[in-house]
Write a protein that binds this DNA or RNA. Structure first.
Length: 828
RNA sequence: GCCCCGAUAGCCCAACCGGCAGAGGCAGUGGUCUCAAACACCAUCCAGUGUGGGUUCGAAUCCCACUCGGGGCACCA
């Protein structure tokens, strides 16, 4: 080997990122600086959590961004002297494992384990500051046993129940979907057009918690992104209005409708029931319209969810030859069955007020039904062309006439309540959470169906109900859970009566797994409890949560729901799981989401090979605000690498000894260091990590100048600056930081060095530049003491040569003085 | 259709309570090094803040309208 060649080639660049990575990894393994479970640790606790990954293959650029950002936060609090719990695990149940099994015959257990191992080793190399003693994965029976336990507790409380309903069905994945998993009529996962299917399924009664989920968001105000709170509010969709009971001719029981506009009751001209509701079928039965209705219902069922939602679709329906009676004026309202009314919102029936509801207007126009205006529209609104939905004075409305919208609503509700014809009511857009899935790779639902005893919970001492092995099972999607075919597994005696019974063969939605995993990290090896309430009191709730905005409603809403349920069960003393939330953006390439099919996929492993771990992490953090998307084409990992090399070089230029008295160092550089640390601190705490990096770069530049053309590398201030750089960099570029720390003569690890203290005296500038404006234009600048008084500054400013020239003899009207930075002189 | 968020240099981004538009980076340009180049190093150029109005002594920042971009919801009665 030619030594001189290597030195010349490599030596020129100097900083060998791969060698540095290989050097420090084993050292860190030894020190384990991020272990949080040490007994007697006196540091205050902080729980910093990153959303756990799904183990599909190796880490990609998205993971690299997410974990780089989460790591900055975790490492920062460690530097600030906190005992930081920063765990990681795997959300390892789900379809990809199952699909791999179907496609390649891979055992989901082994496939999952392999991927976890791969990701784990990549995370280690990526220098994630995880506490490796607390790893969990949700497909582990030791984990999902507690899913089953929680499910049973919820079953006991009536929060988990089975019902027959029209559910979202993904024809591709051959499974049902929760409402939250249907995006614009398509399957969130595979993009197939979702259809409806009538099935008996398991639900969780999240609607019982709608008010608390909504109202408790005030606690999160300012600590969660406004956008996420808004999305959750919209999703829950609370509306206030009234229930109104309508007598139906030829039916004993009245039918109740929900309306947000009880003030328009006098304008109701017809009545609509959801075509797919039981009520529609009942009303049609025996009427002349029965044939028409059945034909219509068939037709409705054929329409896909997407077409149904299309806004330009004309409204259809069928007259049922029946009548409802308007309780306020006794008018007969023809009853239609139509698919623009939803069976599962409100009561599945509405009073139609075409003059003041656009959908009713459209239907009335299509079917030639009367339109009666009961709210006075403003003069500039043409209420003969479209429904008027705004505010206005009630007209043609008997006792409501002359009242504004709010008063009319209040009056009508009072009237209805007095006559026992209705009540004020609240409705939600949120539906109960459908949790059963007809797939293999998930938590088995711990219920046994017995012909004589019904739904019988699996006794707690028989948990976990472990998935049967895949041998001999056909995992391909067929609309029924593959578990149903595992005869040995599915056939069990009833725990209650001992008779022949069958296990429930559905598995749980994987969002159940992630709804409480943050509690399991507290003591993942416990076999007697899901989590230890004492540990929960010590660590939880999560102080800082980081993850993608894609989970704004799904995961975050479910986790909030579970937290409230666990609170009500007396297991935890808080009601919100995540005190602070940071959403990171996504990584794209050339303006598009990265994907193999687009051909714009950037491989993380290639980037790591080319530029090293630190440069990739730095690029992610420096690219912009964390919540912004990153376009890899816009950023420069090679630039990051260059900067790291500059920082590294600085550590080699320090010639003073460790522990030297920095107070004797160059004041100018000391000020620069204090300012950089101070500003970086504020930036990190407000999630402006890109700014924190910029401040670090600034300090490197200042120190460089001090070495090259200032007091030189022997000045203690240069050491102070270099050490500050190493510590600040340790959040983002741990290898470079450690190598710098080493070259500066310190023992590892810089991760525990402690955040630099800032001497406030160094932040006070000895003189500041005061801008002197005349009529808002800068005419002169003065060097003044930061403590200068207003009067003194005014005198100085008025005498400044630039000012005298600009005033050119004109009189002065006002002088605005903002000491010490600005004076604005307004001429007459 | 409704609701949010954003728009600053060729590009990614800073700018505290309204107070000199520039912290940092990329790209560019000029130089040093080199036989030459790459690398590295040093230096340097670059916009008046999407458009139109308003408030103010003073607006990137506050208000109104519009344009463009991004996101959410979308028959929820």
């Amino acid at each position: 080997m030619s030594q001189s060649d290597t030195t010349e080639h490599e030596g020129r660049e100097g900083y060998d990122v791969h060698a540095v990575q290989d050097k420090w990894l084993p050292v860190w393994d030894e020190i384990a600086p991020f272990r949080s479970g040490r007994p007697g640790d006196p540091r205050p606790k902080k729980y910093v959590l990153d959303m756990f990954p799904y183990p599909s293959g190796d880490l990609h650029m998205g993971h690299a961004e997410a974990y780089a950002l989460g790591d900055v936060i975790a490492r920062y609090w460690v530097q600030r002297g906190f005992n930081v719990l920063h765990p990681i695990g795997w959300d390892s149940f789900g379809l990809p494992a199952e699909n791999a099994a179907i496609k390649r015959g891979a055992d989901p257990v082994l496939w999952t384990a392999d991927n976890i191992e791969q990701q784990k080793s990549s995370m280690r190399r990526y220098a994630c500051s995880f506490d490796w003693d607390r790893v969990l994965h949700t497909s582990d029976p030791a984990y999902y046993r507690w899913n089953q336990w929680i499910f049973l507790k919820m079953f006991e409380r009536g929060l988990a129940y089975r019902k027959d309903s029209n559910v979202n069905w993904c024809p591709n994945d051959q499974t049902v979907l929760a409402n939250e998993q249907v995006v614009a009529g398509r399957c969130e996962r595979c993009d197939a057009v979702v259809t409806k299917k009538k099935l008996t399924q398991w639900y969780m009664r999240i609607t019982d918690y709608a008010d608390r989920l909504l109202d408790d968001m005030t606690q999160l105000e300012g600590a969660w992104p406004e956008k996420v709170l808004l999305m959750q509010r919209n999703w829950i969709g609370r509306s206030t209005g009234a229930h109104v009971h309508f007598r139906i001719e030829g039916r004993d029981e009245p039918v109740t409708v929900y309306t947000t506009r009880p003030d328009t009751l006098f304008g109701a001209t017809f009545f609509v029931v959801a075509a797919d509701s039981d009520l529609a079928a009942e009303l049609a039965t025996g009427s002349e319209a029965q044939g028409d209705f059945e034909a219509y219902l068939e037709q409705v069922k054929q329409v896909s969810e997407i077409d149904r939602l299309s806004s330009e679709r004309v409204k259809t329906g069928v007259f049922l030859q029946r009548y409802a009676v308007n309780p306020v004026n006794g008018e007969r309202l023809p009853i239609y069955a139509a698919d623009y009314v939803l069976a599962d919102y409100g009561t599945g029936a509405i009073m139609a007020v075409p003059a003041h509801d656009q959908r009713d207007w459209d239907f009335a126009t299509a079917y030639g039904l009367p339109i009666v205006h009961v709210v006075q529209s403003p003069d500039d609104v043409d209420d003969s062309a479209a429904a008027y939905t705004g505010d206005g004075v009630a007209i043609n409305s008997g006792f409501l006439d002359g009242l504004g919208k709010a008063d009319a609503i209040e009056r009508m509700v009072a009237w209805l309540e007095e006559k026992d014809l209705g009540t004020g009511a609240i409705n939600y857009r949120l539906r109960d959470w459908l949790i059963s899935r007809q797939r293999y790779w998930g938590t088995p639902i711990p219920i046994i169906h017995c012909l004589s005893c019904g739904e019988v919970p699996v006794p707690e001492d028989q948990l976990p109900v472990v998935l049967p092995p895949t041998d001999g099972l056909d995992l391909s999607p067929k609309g029924q859970s593959p578990l149903a075919a595992a005869e040995d597994w599915v056939n069990v005696p009833c725990p209650r009566c001992g008779g022949a019974a069958r296990r429930d063969s559905d598995t749980m939605d994987t969002f159940v797994d992630s709804s409480w995993y943050f509690l399991r990290y507290l003591d993942p090896s416990r076999t007697d409890v899901a989590f230890d309430p004492d540990q929960a009191r010590e660590w939880a709730p999560v102080d800082q949560y980081t993850g993608g905005v894609t989970h704004a409603i799904l995961h975050l809403l479910y986790a909030r729901f579970f937290t409230k349920v666990l609170h009500d069960m007396g297991l935890i003393d808080f009601e919100e799981p995540f005190t602070r939330l940071l959403n990171q953006g996504m990584v794209g390439m050339n303006g598009a989401t990265m994907s193999k099919s687009r051909g714009n996929l950037v491989r993380l492993s290639d980037e790591l090979e080319l530029n090293g771990v630190d440069a990739v992490r730095l690029t992610m953090v420096f690219a912009g605000p964390p919540e912004d998307d990153i376009d890899w084409a816009d950023v420069s990992p090679s630039g990051s690498k260059k900067f790291l090399s500059r920082a590294w070089r600085l550590s080699g230029d320090v010639t003073s000894a460790p522990g030297v008295d920095v107070a004797t160092g160059d004041v100018e550089l000391r000020r620069a260091t204090a300012k950089a640390v101070d500003e970086a601190t504020k930036a990190v705490e407000s999630f402006r990590f890109n700014v924190a990096v910029a401040k670090t770069m600034e300090l490197v530049n200042a120190a460089r100048k001090a070495v090259d053309s200032g007091p030189g590398g022997a000045d203690p201030a240069v050491r102070e600056a270099a050490e500050a750089v190493a510590i600040m960099l340790s959040l983002v570029a741990p290898y470079t930081a450690e190598e710098m720390w080493d070259r500066l003569g310190h023992a590892p690890t810089v991760a525990l060095a402690g955040w630099p203290d800032v001497d406030p005296a160094l932040l006070v500038e000895e003189s500041v530049t005061c801008v002197v404006q005349v009529a808002g234009k800068v005419r002169d600048k003065l060097d003044v003491a930061p403590t200068i008084g207003e009067d003194e500054l005014r005198e100085l400013a008025l005498a400044a040569t630039g000012v005298v020239k600009a005033l050119d003899g004109r009189a002065v009207r006002t002088v605005i003085v903002r000491a010490p930075r600005l004076v604005n002189i307004v001429p007459a």
